Lab assay of single mutants.
Amino acid sequence: SHFELRVGTITLHFDNISEELAEELEKLAKNGVHADEIRRWWEEWLK
């Protein structure tokens, strides 16, 4: 499923992401983690 995450002024787009993972990314964003860090985390997870 597709997921969009708003982090400050940036909107990150994720394809084929589980609800659980989407929730984890939302938690990171709410805790003030920068969009670049979240994207890096996601790319690492995909490997």
Score class of each variant (00 low, 15 high):
Ser1Phe: 14
Val7Arg: 00
Gly8Arg: 01
Trp42Ala: 14
Lys27Arg: 11
Glu23Ala: 14
Glu4Pro: 04
Gly8Glu: 04
Leu5Cys: 01
Thr9Asp: 15
Glu19Lys: 14
Asp15Val: 12
Glu19Leu: 12
Glu20Trp: 07
Glu20Val: 11
Glu4Phe: 06
Leu28Glu: 01
Glu4Leu: 03
Glu4Thr: 02
Trp45Ser: 08
Arg40Pro: 02
Lys47Arg: 12
Ile17Trp: 02
Glu43Pro: 01
Ala35Phe: 08
Ala35Trp: 07
Arg6Met: 15
Lys30Gly: 08
Leu5Glu: 01
Glu26Ser: 12
Asn31Pro: 06
Ile17Arg: 00
Ser1Gln: 13
Glu37Asp: 13
Glu44Asn: 10
Glu44Gly: 05
Ile10Arg: 01
His13Thr: 12
Trp41Ile: 13
Leu28Arg: 04
His2Thr: 07
Leu46Gln: 12
Arg40Gly: 08
Glu37Thr: 06
Lys47Ser: 14
Lys47Phe: 10
Leu12Lys: 00
Asn31Cys: 06
Thr9Ile: 08
Arg39Ile: 15
Val7Gly: 01
Asn16Gly: 08
Thr9Lys: 09
Arg6Cys: 08
Leu12Ala: 00
Leu28Gly: 02
His34Asp: 14
Leu25Ile: 10
Trp42Phe: 15
Glu44Met: 07
Leu46Met: 11
Arg40Val: 07
Gly32Ser: 05
Glu19Ala: 14
Lys30Arg: 13
Val33His: 13
Ser18Phe: 03
Arg39Trp: 15
Glu43Gly: 05
Glu23Pro: 01
Ser1Met: 15
His2Gly: 07
Gly32Ala: 08
Leu21Ile: 13
Ile10Leu: 13
Ser1Ala: 10
Leu12Trp: 03
His34Trp: 07
Arg39Glu: 09
His2Trp: 07
Asn16Val: 05
Thr11Trp: 08
Lys47Glu: 13
Leu12His: 01
Glu23Val: 12
Arg40Asn: 10
Asp36Ala: 10
Thr9Met: 11
Thr9Phe: 11
Leu12Asn: 00
Ile17Pro: 03
Glu4Ile: 07
Leu28Lys: 07
Leu5Trp: 02
Trp42Val: 05
Asn31Ser: 14
Lys30Gln: 13
Val7Cys: 04
Gly8Leu: 03
Leu21Asn: 07
Lys47Ile: 13
Arg39Gln: 14
Ala35Leu: 11
Asp36Lys: 05
Asn31Tyr: 09
Ala35Gly: 04
Asp15Pro: 10
Glu4Ala: 01
Glu19Pro: 15
Ile38Val: 06
Lys27Glu: 10
His34Tyr: 06
Ala29Cys: 05
Ser1Gly: 14
Ser1Asn: 14
Thr11Gln: 03
Asp36Glu: 12
Ile17Thr: 02
Gly32Arg: 02
Ile10Lys: 03
Phe3Asn: 01
His13Met: 10
Lys30Tyr: 10
Trp45Leu: 08
Ile38Phe: 05
Glu26Met: 14
Ser18Val: 04
Leu21Pro: 01
Glu43Ser: 08
Phe14Lys: 00
Trp42Thr: 04
Trp41Thr: 13
Lys30Thr: 10
Val33Leu: 15
Val7Pro: 01
Thr11Gly: 01
His13Tyr: 14
Val7Trp: 05
Ile10Tyr: 03
Trp41Cys: 06
Phe14Cys: 00
Trp42Met: 09
Ser18Gln: 04
Val7Ser: 01
Ala22Asp: 01
Ala22Met: 15
Glu44Val: 07
Asp15Arg: 05
Phe3Leu: 11
Arg39Ser: 09
Ile10Thr: 11
Glu19Thr: 13
Ser18Pro: 10
Glu19Gly: 12
Ala29Gln: 04
Glu23Arg: 14
Lys27Trp: 10
Leu46Ser: 11
Trp42Cys: 07
Phe14Arg: 00
His34Arg: 11
Glu19Trp: 10
Ala29Pro: 02
His34Gly: 15
Trp42Lys: 02
Leu25Gly: 00
Lys27Gln: 13
Val7Asp: 03
Glu23Asn: 13
Glu20Gly: 10
Ser18Met: 03
Ala22Ile: 15
Asp36Ser: 09
Thr11Asn: 03
Arg40Phe: 07
Asn16Phe: 09
Ile38Gly: 01
Glu44Ile: 08
Lys27Leu: 11
Ala29Val: 11
Lys47His: 11
Ala29Phe: 04
Arg39His: 08
Ala35Met: 06
Leu46Asn: 11
Leu21Gly: 05
Asp36Gly: 08
His34Gln: 14
His34Asn: 13
Glu20Thr: 10
Val33Phe: 12
Arg6Ile: 15
His2Asp: 08
Asp15Glu: 11
Leu46Gly: 09
Ala35Lys: 02
Phe14Val: 02
Lys30His: 11
Arg40Tyr: 08
Ala29Asp: 02
Ile38Trp: 04
His13Ile: 15
Phe3Gln: 01
Gly8Asp: 09
Glu44Arg: 06
Trp45Gly: 04
Asp15Leu: 12
Glu23Met: 14
Asn31Asp: 11
Ser1Asp: 09
Glu44Asp: 12
Trp45Asn: 06
Thr11His: 04
Glu43Asn: 09
Glu43Arg: 04
Ile10Val: 13
Arg6Tyr: 08
Leu46Arg: 06
Lys27Cys: 12
Trp41Asp: 02
Ser1Arg: 11
Val7Phe: 05
Ile10Asp: 09
Asp15Cys: 05
Asp15Gly: 08
Lys27Asn: 12
Glu4Ser: 02
Trp45Gln: 10
Glu44His: 10
Ser18Asp: 06
Glu26Val: 14
Arg40Ile: 10
Leu12Met: 11
His34Lys: 12
Ile17Leu: 05
Ile17His: 01
Glu26Gly: 09
Ala29Lys: 04
Leu21Tyr: 03
Leu21Gln: 10
Phe14Gly: 01
Glu37Ser: 06
Arg6His: 15
Glu24Gln: 13
Leu5Pro: 00
Thr9Arg: 03
Ala22Ser: 06
Ser18Leu: 03
Trp41Leu: 13
Ala22Tyr: 11
Ile38Arg: 00
His34Met: 11
Ala22Pro: 01
Thr11Glu: 03
Glu37Pro: 03
Glu19Ile: 12
Thr11Pro: 00
Leu21Asp: 06
Glu24Lys: 12
Glu23Phe: 13
Gly8Pro: 01
Glu19Ser: 13
Lys27Thr: 12
Thr11Met: 06
Trp45Met: 09
Glu26Asp: 12
Gly32Trp: 06
Asn31Trp: 07
Lys30Asp: 08
Lys27Met: 12
Glu37His: 07
Trp45Thr: 07
Glu4Cys: 01
Leu5Ala: 00
Phe3Val: 04
Thr9Gly: 15
His13Asp: 02
Leu5His: 01
His2Tyr: 06
Asn31Lys: 12
Phe3Asp: 02
Phe14His: 00
Lys27Ser: 13
Lys27Gly: 12
Ile17Gly: 01
Thr9Trp: 07
Glu20Met: 06
Leu21Thr: 10
Glu20Asp: 10
Arg40Ala: 13
His2Leu: 03
Lys47Trp: 11
Glu4His: 03
Val33Trp: 15
Glu26Thr: 15
Glu24Gly: 04
Lys47Asp: 08
His34Glu: 14
Phe3Pro: 00
Leu46Cys: 08
Ile17Met: 04
Arg6Ser: 15
Glu43Ile: 10
Leu21Ser: 07
Ile38Ala: 03
Trp45Phe: 10
Phe3Gly: 02
Leu12Cys: 02
Arg40Lys: 12
Leu28Thr: 01
Arg40Met: 11
Ala35Cys: 02
Asn16Leu: 05
Ile10Met: 06
Ser1Pro: 04
Val7Asn: 01
Glu19Tyr: 11
Ile10Ala: 07
Trp42Ser: 05
His13Gln: 08
Glu19Phe: 12
Arg6Asn: 15
Glu24Arg: 12
Ser18Tyr: 03
Glu19Asp: 13
Ile10Pro: 00
Gly8Val: 02
Trp42His: 12
Glu26Ala: 13
Phe3Thr: 03
Asp15Trp: 15
His13Phe: 13
Asp36Thr: 08
Ala35Asp: 02
Leu12Asp: 00
Lys27Ala: 12
Ile10Asn: 03
Glu37Lys: 07
Leu28Asn: 02
Glu37Ile: 06
Lys27His: 09
Leu46Ala: 09
Glu44Ala: 10
His13Val: 15
Gly8Ile: 05
Glu43Thr: 09
Ser18Arg: 04
Glu37Trp: 06
Arg39Lys: 13
Leu21Arg: 03
Glu37Ala: 10
Trp45His: 09
Asn16Pro: 06
Glu43Phe: 09
Leu21Lys: 05
Asn31Ile: 10
Thr9Glu: 15
Ile10Ser: 07
Leu28Met: 15
Phe14Asn: 00
Arg6Gln: 15
Lys30Ile: 10
Lys47Tyr: 09
Leu28Phe: 05
Leu5Asn: 01
Phe3Glu: 02
Gly32Leu: 05
Lys27Phe: 10
Arg6Val: 15
Ile10Glu: 15
His2Val: 07
Trp42Gln: 02
Leu28Cys: 04
His2Arg: 09
Trp41Lys: 14
Glu4Met: 02
Lys30Val: 09
Trp41Glu: 05
Ser18Ile: 03
Asp36Val: 11
Asn31Ala: 13
Glu37Arg: 06
Asp15Phe: 15
Lys30Glu: 12
Trp42Asp: 00
Glu24Asn: 07
Thr9Cys: 08
Glu4Asp: 03
Trp45Tyr: 15
Glu44Thr: 10
Leu12Ile: 06
Glu20Tyr: 08
Val33Asn: 09
Trp41Met: 13
Gly32Met: 07
Asp15Ser: 11
Glu44Lys: 06
Leu25Lys: 00
Trp41Gly: 03
Leu25Ser: 00
Glu26Ile: 15
Asn31Phe: 10
Arg39Tyr: 14
Ser1His: 13
Asn16Ala: 05
His34Ser: 15
Thr9Asn: 15
Asp15Asn: 10
Asp36His: 10
His34Leu: 10
Ile17Glu: 00
Asn31Glu: 12
Glu4Gly: 00
Ser18Ala: 05
Glu19Arg: 14
Val33Ile: 11
Glu4Gln: 05
Leu28Tyr: 05
His13Leu: 11
Glu20Leu: 06
Glu24Tyr: 13
Glu43Met: 10
Ile38Asn: 00
Glu24Thr: 12
His13Ser: 08
Glu26His: 11
Ala35Arg: 02
Gly8Tyr: 05
Ile17Tyr: 03
Leu28Pro: 00
Trp41Tyr: 14
Glu26Pro: 00
Trp41Pro: 00
Trp41Ala: 12
Glu24Ser: 09
Ala22His: 05
Phe14Ile: 03
Glu26Cys: 04
Lys30Cys: 05
Leu25Val: 05
